[in-house]
């Protein structure tokens, strides 16, 4: 058996070491990853995938720890993917989210993986989607993805998860603005964490006010759940709401969402394939460098140059 087949079989059998190796492949070796994902794809689609986003300091990791415990109590296996930013200057990253979940690390029913964005925009890593598929194929019942948490435009998560939780906490100052600006629309459930603090009710009211501004008719109104992640208060209720949303999706929208997700992924895959093959060809024919020179010399602007090259290419 080849190495990659061994890994594929291992993933499908739920072997933890092989799951870990598979995620590394997804992160680092695009060619191998393609084969890997192609082989496991038929075995995916069973897991319930939850995305968790919100500003730093809101308590995402602590909440996840409590959510996992609650799912475990309910007999479900859980995968967690926690994403942290890569430094654009050094390429290094400090992956610190799992510290809050370390006690779960020895539970056989839980698999936690930290990922660096490797400069992928949108709050998750490029390989996060594949990592989710790997955990899905490995038989995890629930998969939770924690985004970077820088606050803005972390909307990539909708391409990965079915239920999106946007978390906020009182006392974070202007971060509510960030929620308004970027991630408001994607929320299926709002969580106001640290609900034992003075200003918790104000945070709830802020979110309610925002929701009311948006008066479009919607089949699902995002509920606002108060939690205290430190003690686990409110977490069972949150899980209930996630379940409700899941049932709602199944009845109403799951197929539509799946189609949308599939469409987004297909478009992206085509884009990537087309782009890389065209660029490769241009480079091979030395046309790429030539135009680069022209751009630097200000003989032509980048957009026009691209158009010129592509016109020749697509004719």
């Amino acid at each position: 058996m080849s190495k990659i087949d061994e890994i594929i079989n291992g993933v499908l059998a739920g072997n933890r070491r092989k799951i870990a190796k598979a995620i590394t492949i997804a992160e680092s070796s695009p060619e191998e990853a393609k084969n890997l994902i192609a082989s496991i794809y038929p075995h995916t689609g069973k897991a319930q995938i939850i995305g968790l986003t919100g500003p730093g300091g809101a308590g995402k990791s602590t909440l996840i720890e409590k959510m996992v415990r609650e799912y475990r109590r309910r007999g479900k296996t859980v995968g967690v993917i926690a994403v942290d930013p890569t430094s654009p200057f050094t390429g290094g990253a400090f992956l610190g989210d799992r510290i809050r979940m370390q006690e779960l690390s020895t539970d056989e029913g839980v698999f936690i993986r930290s990922m660096a964005t490797r400069n992928n925009p949108g709050g998750i890593a490029k390989a996060t989607k594949d990592a989710v598929k790997i955990l899905d194929a490995a038989g995890k019942d629930v998969i939770i993805v924690e985004t970077v948490g820088a606050g803005q435009s972390e909307v990539e998560i909708i391409k990965v998860a079915q239920t999106i939780i946007v978390i906020h906490a009182p006392g974070l100052g202007d971060e509510i603005q960030a929620i308004k600006a970027g991630i408001m629309e994607i929320a299926d459930i709002f969580v106001v964490n640290k609900a034992d603090r003075e200003n918790a009710d104000k945070a709830v009211m802020d979110i309610q006010a925002m929701l009311q501004l948006d008066n479009k008719e919607k089949p699902w109104t995002p509920p606002i759940i108060k939690t205290v992640a430190l003690t686990g208060e409110g977490v069972p209720k949150l899980i209930e709401k996630i379940e409700e949303h899941w049932q709602f999706l199944k009845k109403e929208l799951l197929h539509k969402r799946s189609l949308e997700k599939a469409e987004a992924e297909l478009i992206e895959a085509i884009k990537e394939k087309v782009t890389s093959s065209i660029i490769e060809k241009l480079k091979r024919e030395k046309r790429f460098e030539k135009v680069l020179q022209q751009i630097v010399e200000r003989e032509i602007d980048p957009a026009s140059a691209a158009e010129k090259l592509l016109n020749q290419e697509l004719e």
Binding site: R16, R17, I19, A20, K21, I23, T24, T86, G92, A93, F94, L95, G96, R98, I99, Q102, E103, S105, T106, F111, I112, R113, S114, A116
Partner: peptide
């Protein structure tokens, strides 16, 4: 890419972390 476990980890936790994080 550096993963830090935090303080006071048991050998089991350290090894499981190393495994999952590959």
């Amino acid at each position: 890419e550096v993963i830090y476990t935090g303080l006071r980890q048991t050998p089991e936790q350290i090894v499981e972390t190393a495994l999952q994080e590959d």
